[in-house]
Computed example of a mutant assay.
Amino acid sequence: EADLSLTDIGALTAERVAAWAPTAEARGVRLVGDCPPTTAWADPVTLSSALDAVIDNAVKFTPKDERVEVTVASNGDTSTIVVADGGPGLTDEELTRVGDRFWRSSRHQNVKGSGLGLSITRALLAAAGGSIAYGHHEPHGLKVTVTLPRTGPTA
């Protein structure tokens, strides 16, 4: 059951970026956050887990000396958190399957993890009226966009 509240997703995201910074730094990856105060309806625990899964993935697949950028913004009725990395990214076909239970790119089979993180994340976000989408980050990399409603659930 999602426990929704009006949440400062900017502050929450900044906190997750700070928590992952040492891991990124140890791998030679620059993790940068642009997280202005932004509110949205979210379950803070679910959102934290979702961001952990996405940032962990981004840092894991981004080569040394590349960047992972986390950007929070509000846009009318929704707020977004975008995590863009400088890794190998995914093909169009892979993008259609990412987030499916246990699916992993065949190129990433040797990376630790069950691949469960992203499918669980998607289900939890959907329960809160949010969504998660995957796309290309030009010139290379993966861009993950979490979208959350700015107006509360209507009874």
Rank of each mutant, 00 (worst) to 15 (best):
R27A: 12
G141S: 04
T23S: 10
V32I: 12
E69G: 10
Y134R: 01
K112E: 15
T96I: 03
G33H: 07
N110H: 15
A21P: 01
H140R: 13
K64L: 15
T121D: 01
I81L: 02
F61Y: 15
L31I: 08
H137P: 00
K112S: 15
A24P: 02
A26D: 04
V111P: 00
P88I: 14
T121V: 11
P139Q: 03
H140C: 14
K112I: 13
R30S: 05
L31Y: 00
G115L: 03
G33T: 07
V32E: 13
T96R: 10
A128T: 06
A24T: 00
I81V: 11
V54L: 10
A58Y: 05
L142W: 03
R30V: 05
A155V: 12
G113P: 03
G86R: 09
A73F: 13
P153C: 06
G152N: 07
Q109E: 14
W41I: 05
V68N: 11
Q109C: 07
I55V: 09
V68H: 14
E69Q: 13
L47K: 10
L142K: 03
A133V: 06
T91V: 07
S114R: 05
P36R: 11
I81K: 02
S74A: 13
D52N: 11
A50C: 12
H108Y: 12
G115D: 05
A24R: 05
W103P: 00
E94D: 00
G152H: 07
D92S: 06
T23E: 07
